[in-house]
């Protein structure tokens, strides 16, 4: 689907699973993530065999970050709808946590729609376990859409912003 970012994020998720598998001396690990209607990631990682990735179409709805937040990336060359996760300019979340659009409450947001950003500029922060992870712009461009809300929860792989 030519979506490098979500592909990369899926790959890093799978890599993290593989690491978990190894670290905990497990032989197999299966994770299913429902990102939205017709959009899920189903991963089974097992040792000494191979990694199997498949997308499926679950019935369950996802606990999306916000009502406006769209569905998330599928690993397989599936949907090509208007799903922003499939947008080539989508920046996806590398972790589960809480989104902050500014360094502190009341401060100017890192990114606003229409603003230009340079590669490496912080566009938002995702917090988990009192760790503030700065999400850098993967490339220079203009912020076209912001798909998350300040203070809202975010899932792994969720599209955060679209930069073109």
């Amino acid at each position: 689907m030519g979506n490098k970012t979500s592909h990369d994020s899926d790959v890093s998720f799978i890599a993290a699973l593989a690491e978990l598998l190894r670290d905990n001396d497990l032989t197999e690990l299966q994770v299913k993530r429902d990102y939205g209607e017709n959009d899920s990631l189903n991963v089974r990682v097992s040792r000494q065999t191979q990694t199997i990735v498949q997308a499926s179409a679950p019935a369950a709805a996802a606990p999306a970050a916000a009502p406006s937040a769209p569905a998330m990336p599928a690993a397989a060359p599936a949907s090509d709808t208007t799903d922003p996760a499939n947008h080539p300019g989508a920046v996806t979340s590398p972790m589960v946590g809480t989104v902050y659009m500014a360094a502190e409450p009341g401060a100017a947001p890192f990114a606003t729609v229409g603003a230009t950003v340079a590669e490496g500029d912080t566009i938002l922060i995702i917090e988990a376990m009192k760790t503030m992870n700065h999400i850098p712009a993967p490339r220079a461009g203009t912020i076209k859409r912001i798909l998350v809300e300040d203070g809202g929860p975010v899932e792994f792989g969720a599209p955060l912003v679209i930069i073109e």
Binding site: D8, S9, V11, S12, A15, A16, V91, P94, T122, M129, K130, T131, M132, N133, H134, I135, P136, P138
Partner: peptide, 12 residues
């Protein structure tokens, strides 16, 4: 204690 990191992945 406060932690900060930066990076889109796979590693910070």
């Amino acid at each position: 204690i406060l932690l900060e990191s930066s990076g889109q992945g796979p590693f910070v």
